[in-house]
Design a protein around this nucleic acid. Sequence first.
DNA 1: CTGAAAGCGCTTACAG
DNA 2: CTGAAAGCGCTTACAG
Lengths: 337, 337
Amino acid sequence: MAATIYDIAKKAGVSIATVSRVFNNSENVSDKSRKKVLAVADEVGYHPQVYAQGLASRKNNTLMIVVPVISNYFFMEILGGVQDKLSDLNYDLSIFNISPNKDLKKQVEHVLKRRWAEGYLFVSVHLKDEDWESFTKYNVPITLVDEYFEGFDSVSVDNSQGAYRAVKALYDSGHTKIAMLSAYEDSKPIKDRLRGYKKALKECGIPFNGKLIVKGDTMNRDGFTERAGYEAMKKILALKPRPDACFCASDIQAVGALKAMQDTRISIPIIGYDDIELAEYMGLSTVRQPMREMGFFATQNLIDRMNNPDKTVSQTIYTPELVTRTSISVNGRSKDT
Amino acid sequence: MAATIYDIAKKAGVSIATVSRVFNNSENVSDKSRKKVLAVADEVGYHPQVYAQGLASRKNNTLMIVVPVISNYFFMEILGGVQDKLSDLNYDLSIFNISPNKDLKKQVEHVLKRRWAEGYLFVSVHLKDEDWESFTKYNVPITLVDEYFEGFDSVSVDNSQGAYRAVKALYDSGHTKIAMLSAYEDSKPIKDRLRGYKKALKECGIPFNGKLIVKGDTMNRDGFTERAGYEAMKKILALKPRPDACFCASDIQAVGALKAMQDTRISIPIIGYDDIELAEYMGLSTVRQPMREMGFFATQNLIDRMNNPDKTVSQTIYTPELVTRTSISVNGRSKDT
DNA sequence: CTGAAAGCGCTTACAG
DNA sequence: CTGAAAGCGCTTACAG
């Protein structure tokens, strides 16, 4: 049906080798041949097929991002950084969205085995060390983003430190009964952020109280949703004695939390996490991660490794910064009306 | 380096044909052979390479979604619907994110030419009819989502009707000076929604006034951002005479608009568009499209066409519905404090 | 149920 | 600058 390199070669009166060279930007083609080939190819809409190219050349010029949840601001920003980096490079970018209904490790393995891409960027894929370890045998360039494993290059953020800074800020503005609006407790970010929360309390001389760690009831997306935030804040506000401030594990939960405070007409200062675009428009104080830079750098890193498979593994850890807005003093909404 | 079908065949003591059959779930393999092959394959982490399979079988079992902006709620929901549909089918799903910096048509053509997937879902890709027409020659299954072209199957929503309903609702609750918080005027959704806006006004006997169509200054993502919404609402509130209600072209802009109203302490009823998850938590009235169903249905449609290339082209158009929350009467926020 | 062999559409030394 | 030919790692009739 579709034209092949043979058709083009015949029509252009050259060999298939020449056609191939034209499409691979080889310099060893006369201008005349090149023009002729291009003209014929354009006419029939020909372009080498990825699968044939991939097999013959043993490379496919594609990078693949593997990610569990596309629908979140963190990923979008990372993606932006990746695309910035890739924009002048000649790589195709494909995104594989891990399905929440199937086994995570199996899916990762599936992708790796099929040798779809030349390099992989795993974003927010959290696996046990032994699982990551088992993937080293595929011997393919991998960079981890928002995850840490000593066997692969990684780019992550110090979640514990971020939480620490948020809680510390709350303490510094005079609060001592600080709740943590949490999510699924086994999720990686929650574990890390809880650690930071505890560390801050300890440093401030406040005893840890498990009752102040509250999550919602809705646990899709591990509880990182508006709804779960809403549910959790309702519980927090019903606590006796009532907490006088709250660190939220994510901005998206904070949105729900804000709504819960509105509905109950009780406001306490809160700090979120992520600095999603909305945060600015909700006056939400939060903890910001340099997402775009992370995506950019991770891509750079991956490409470096592809070009030099033997370079030593590097771990890059960014420190998040606190962004202060109105929500830290009082609920940003209440003030304005 | 990596194992091939020959290695597995040798180790398992069978021919490569048998190994191939095992991986293609052919029934004509003895249990003994199958087990042996699977055992060996598992041991070395073997799996047929996509590129070799793709070339030899002339199919690759993958569907590709091509989309300009991943980072929006509409797309996320569409994706959810696609994944729902695909969950038990044996297709891989790959996402190609059109880069905003390069020529749209060229990128689409690039993807199509390379024959990456067996079927394509174009989501919110807006092209001229003649461009779509030129792609028919590739003769590959394509379904358009949120776009209409008579030559391909399509699944879309009646944007004009959605806007019409919103404006009508505003009128019905007593408003006559209704502004439209717009975005980049050449974008497809804006053109359609403006049409609905005009239609509603006409029906209500209100003369159209171009001054009431206002967009922001920041035009990235065609102005569908919080920032652009903020900017536009500031302008709207400064208009004399001041509009007494506003139809926003998207929820995300409405978020900015809400903030602008807070900052200026002037509130007028607004209705958004999309019904993003946040809307509920902001009390935002809006126009809802059945996104998940659309994704599900479009995928079904695409697969049908792949199985039956000659079936007649079908156009499916959904009608959006109005979701009423507090923002339609007064700014949902102001009430609560 | 199984294997030998042709073929998928390219790339890439090699020789000229 | 150019072409003939081997090879990439699979699938799939075909014959048994």
